[in-house]
Design a protein around this nucleic acid. Structure first.
Lengths: 132, 132
DNA sequence: TTGCACACGTTATAGCATAACGCAATTGAT
DNA sequence: ATCAATTGCGTTATGCTATAACGTGTGCAA
């Protein structure tokens, strides 16, 4: 899937995420866009919904936040399952793809006759700088 | 770690989760315990906090819900990382442990000098019955 | 031109989680 | 025994996260 032209709101939300140091909550994004006319959470959530669909933004389930994909210009969906390491101190996020992990998980679900739609792998802990 | 004697509230919350068909939200648990004197969310959340610590209950981050551990009498923390398959239609949850997946993920974070604390693996999709 | 799809704006509401206070019971050291 | 520390508990209030439901405007194809 190639990413379609983003709308105004989608572009604004995406730009905020791209410039951010780490993941942001929807309400944090909203606050950063008040000067651009954003007034309500739905404006953010609707844009995020599309950006997630296009694969240019990820949702971090364990911290209710969103982050721009680490592969600029690329559709992340094509890389298989994405794993994240999230620093609980500084908020930094590392993104990671491993086909072996994908494979093991998909083997297992196949054995269970389970049909996977969306997989979340999130490792919370401390990054090198914060663990020191 | 061996599980200490549960308090009254902890026992009530755990029993509700054990008897449930699938994962429950904190507020659903609260509703089920109103007859037993529960009035406020904190009563549930405080019990859950301990049950999670003891490893007898899991939190499903992607659906903001809680489920009793599938290994009765056992401390799940000792099994390494837990993966879940969650049916988005019927809510059924399957629990799964795979040392190879653990290993790959831990190898990677080690390479990043990242210190992991808590890992989430959740696969949402359709179970065999619901996919039919 | 009519119908449809989509993005957008607004208000209201639902759902999830914790802060802060105070009280009661338990434990363990002095 | 008593005092201090810890832990569980109850209550009120609040904050954060997410979506429902309504209506508007625009572009495009039948």
């Amino acid at each position: 899937m190639t990413t379609p032209q983003l709308t105004k709101n989608q572009t604004l939300v995406f730009d905020v995420l791209e410039k951010a140091e780490g993941p942001l909550s929807a309400y944090t994004i909203l606050d950063k866009l008040r000067d651009h006319g954003f007034r309500a959470p739905l404006q953010v959530y609707r844009a995020l919904e599309k950006l997630l669909e296009y694969g240019v933004v990820h949702r971090l389930e364990s911290i209710n936040s969103f982050v721009a994909c680490a592969h600029p210009g690329d559709d992340c969906h094509s890389h298989g399952i994405v794993a994240f390491a999230i620093c609980e101190s500084c908020g930094q996020v590392m993104e990671f793809h491993d086909h072996e992990v994908d494979h093991r998980l998909m083997e297992w679900v196949r054995g269970q006759k389970f049909k996977p739609e969306k997989t979340t792998i999130e490792i919370r802990g401390l990054c090198e700088a914060c663990a020191a």
